[in-house]
Design a protein around this nucleic acid. Structure first.
Lengths: 201, 201
DNA sequence: AATTTCAGCGTACAGTTGTACGCTAAAATA
DNA sequence: TATTTTAGCGTACAACTGTACGCTGAAATT
């Protein structure tokens, strides 16, 4: 197992994934990517692409998984910061904005494919976001005075706002982002306040 | 003015717009549309397309305007319903869900191009949504005990949640939509409650 | 009635796309 | 050592794309 051969294969597979991520940008979405261009950037012949993925769709789903993984890792790190005494809301927002800044193409993929033309893509992104919501809901349920159902709705609303703010931030400069983040934090406070009122135990 | 000629031109122009909207669907986004296919469905030769639009981009921006118009008209109608004694939150949500149901392709356009690959498109959609937010903010400021800044943030949060719920609803059956709508209404209540607490006068 | 304007057409072309097919050389296996 | 497996390549092709160019006939203008 794991001979020279399999190792090299894994390497070019990763090269394909990275080439595809590289070609995502503000002006280029996944559905505009061409198999040939991706193969070219990865340094292999177009037809060799098929040794790794059935088609572009399969590549895309792999990329969604990878982006979801990045996001989850980042949030795990956020939870550590919170545990050592940070504010939940502020730390989470900061962490998310960091994700957008350092992995903007991964975020763009999730953002766009959430409402894209492939049902499989939409489902995959929805799954990643649901992870996120469930984790937050669990936290809210155990750490704040809020019953289970309301904790879920609260988490859902919060994640939606954060995600959308991230989308807006993509087009903004530092100052606008600052204002956006400030508004976002107020909005999250509204939700926390309201949820604790209606769902308080 | 308005001779037979100009009238016919206007007619095929509209045919192009409608053909393009027709070709939008869950599986087909604007950027996948081809000039040739649109022209074909509108019943004109590919090259005649240029008599009406400089390129597909210009067509798309026109479509965004049209979708925005539809949405604004619908919301004006909602305001009448509210004036004659309906609940603000519930009436607005119902009206929006109606928009998604009866003009799903127009909604899909706004939804997707909001995070699409053309900055001009994103700006156009953002403008339509901002209209929406400002109107709601004005209502909240005058009709509820909430200062201007908080009214704006409240409106922004609410529109974000409604818009996103609409996006989710596109893939759902009647029952799921019912549950979604119920959650959405709770979430809007959270925001109203929180905003009035922090921004109450 | 003579002239101008212009929506729509057909032809043509160069560029790009996905992918079928068969080959090669090197790694893996027997 | 002999055989099998397979990642990657090159060639080839049909389908489709946007759009340049020049023509036509009818509406509009003079």
């Amino acid at each position: 197992m794991s001979g020279v051969r399999a190792q090299q294969k894994q390497k070019t597979r990763q090269a394909l994934i990275e080439a595809a991520f590289n070609q995502l940008s503000a002006e280029h979405s996944f559905s505009n990517l061409s198999l040939r261009e991706v193969a070219r950037e990865a340094g292999i012949a177009p037809t060799s692409f098929y040794r790794h993925f059935k088609d572009m769709n399969e590549l895309g789903l792999t990329m969604v998984d990878e982006a979801g993984l990045t996001l989850r890792q980042l949030m795990r790190q956020a939870r550590r910061r919170i545990a050592s005494g940070g504010s939940v809301i502020i730390t989470s927002v900061e962490t998310f904005m960091e994700f957008i800044d350092t992995s903007s193409n991964q975020f763009r993929l999730l953002l766009r494919e959430r409402s894209g033309t492939s049902k499989a893509f939409r489902a995959a992104v929805a799954r990643e976001i649901k992870h996120f919501i469930l984790e937050l809901a669990h936290y809210l349920e155990t750490e704040t005075p809020c019953d289970k159902h309301h904790a879920y709705m609260q988490a859902e609303a919060m994640v939606t706002l954060v995600f959308n703010a991230g989308a807006e931030a993509l087009d903004q400069d530092a100052q606008q982002r600052g204002e956006l983040t400030e508004r976002l934090i107020w909005q999250l406070r509204y939700i926390a306040r309201g949820a604790n009122h209606y769902g308080g135990q």
